[in-house]
Write a protein that binds this DNA or RNA. Structure first.
Lengths: 197, 197, 197, 197
DNA sequence: CATGAATGAGCTTTCATTCAT
DNA sequence: CATGAATGAAAGCTCATTCAT
């Protein structure tokens, strides 16, 4: 009975996930092929299916991992003294992140979620989680008097998430866009949106 | 003895474009097939290539057509007495439009533009045009005292376009989202962003 | 508007069907591959799908063609003066046929029909037709006093079809089986089964 | 220090065989996978290969086991006072058996035997054994005056086996076939075939 | 202008089998 | 004895594009 380490299994899974992430970032959900992902992860084509049931399942896993990341970051944000500046810089951080790794996947996955019920469900579940966390954050800001108490926290959270989604298009529409000036404009919008009047 | 009627040619082109738009909206850029588009346009597969050199060329043409539409709408907006409410309602109109026809293509095309240089170039050209029009609109609002004169009009235009892009994700992330409440949140954000202080 | 001959289309379809039949006979339903069939029919892999929607659809078409053949042969049998000898020799003819072309497909398709609803439906429909034809034949024999009037014509037809199915196993179970002696045994069984007492 | 217990080994082999039989009955020879069989037998994929050299070897073993079963049943039949009714009810028993467990495998294996030399050899060997047993039974009936002495016992045995094979197709061709009426038709055919004139 | 037959590379996925542990 | 990770060939099928008619 030599049942082998489930830890190793998880590690391999994570390796494949990282490989897939790189491929999706480079070529998009449809552009990236299983063969590429396997090559990147240095496993055989067939073996990938010991870890993931389908290409879609890989995307699901990536998205799921994203929620957990968001949760931990939001937990930190709650600690910060100024809710708005914290949020503004978090959004800036996300923009910078995608400036490096390519925003394609993010939009690709969203578009795919609009069509594939499987991925759609994953995205909706994930969004619900993130939105709740973000709304809590906003409400905390409201109770501290840092954020306009008249705002509908839940909807403001949804809008902020969509603003983040939209920011993925900035560099696609203008790759030479001045980072500082655009950051300033975003900051202005968010700050004015959330500040008490 | 067969003279080419350039008018008829353009009409056919437009018909195909509309058919393609319906297909892309339904199934996305990758999901829609040439065969589907041909069926929808009621022409043969081979014949489509008399009008468009490739699938990408169809997308390019659709995007190009989008700029012209935006131009004429913005021209109308310039006439309106209140620049901000006009803008807010235009953005609301676009959201409503996509609520019906599916936002998938919009995001799909953006994602594709991030990868394919061909489509990327088209999107960038188109974005430049729309952004200039929008920035002009904003500057006009500033000169009339309706919009905060301290705003960087050019960047604000870029941000507003990206806000519009992001709004495509709203219903994907939560298909049951309350339309009125979310519209109100958007309105608040745009209004506060642009209003003189 | 050069709509091309639907006749040519049918001819090509028939060619592919014949090629497929050869492949199925050689390697069975699962053993034969689309690639083999295409090679045998001298067309490309993709082109086959202009004529048949799937591998299963090819089997369906083959089975359907079989019913038509059976119908025309049964029509001839009705003319013959002695119903029983006619039937006996028809069954012998079918055994001889499969002695040449391999009985594998026949059993393969039946087995597949027991599992795949798609093929099952085709086989059931086809069987219904053949059985009705055969039962009519038997009833005609009964009215002429050549066949035992006490027999349940419909069930006898079903049993005879199953006897034919079973005869496909004869050579598989013993490739060296003496053809004449086994034919005689079959003849005895059928004759005694159907003859008036 | 680890001595192999040949009894345990045989028990495990039998367990796997039963599991495989269930899988083959459900999904056919090609449809059933090694993974399924292993799951059903609650062993690992690799371990199965300690007991059977290949998927074909499993089929061989199942077929072999079938002969032994037939031998013991035929031994009982020899005891019965009326050879024909005993045979008729044995065939009915086999039909009823397959009505429950699915006849697919039987036909599947026969079809496979027509192609694979390995399985073909096993089936031929097994058939030879069963046929000899059955022929002996018939000859015993002849010597007792219960069966037509003019019949070629050996060929009659072959034909009866093929009738049994063919009966597997009855329900596939018509799943709603009336069991009693069809049983009666079979009974009539067998009885008239074998009875002295 | 217009058709649709034809291509062929490429896709995701499956699965019997092997082997290090 | 026993596991399950790993392989890799091959399967069915799709689709943008070309071309003879």
């Amino acid at each position: 009975m030599r049942t082998i380490d489930p830890v190793k299994h998880e590690e391999k899974r994570a390796e494949i996930l990282e490989a897939a992430e790189r491929c999706f970032a480079r070529d998009g959900f449809h552009g990236a092929t299983i063969a590429q992902i396997c090559a990147e992860a240095k496993i055989s084509a067939g073996h990938l299916y010991h870890y993931f049931a389908s290409k879609e399942a890989i995307v699901s896993a990536i998205v799921d991992a994203g929620v957990e990341g968001a949760a931990s970051r939001f937990a930190e944000l709650t600690e910060s003294s100024n809710a708005i500046t914290a949020l503004v810089s978090e959004l800036a951080r996300l923009r910078a992140l995608h400036r490096k790794s390519g925003a394609g996947v993010h939009l690709d996955v969203l578009a795919e979620a609009g069509r594939s019920p499987a991925i759609g469900a994953v995205i909706q579940e994930s969004s619900k989680g993130v939105r709740r966390l973000l709304a809590d954050l906003l409400r905390k800001g409201q109770s501290r008097g840092q954020i306009d108490p008249d705002l509908d926290a839940d909807m403001a959270a949804a809008v902020l998430i969509s603003v983040n989604d939209g920011s993925k298009s900035l560099l696609i529409r203008d790759p030479k866009l001045d980072a500082k000036r655009s950051a300033k404009a975003f900051e202005a919008m968010i700050t004015r949106f959330l500040s008490p009047r």
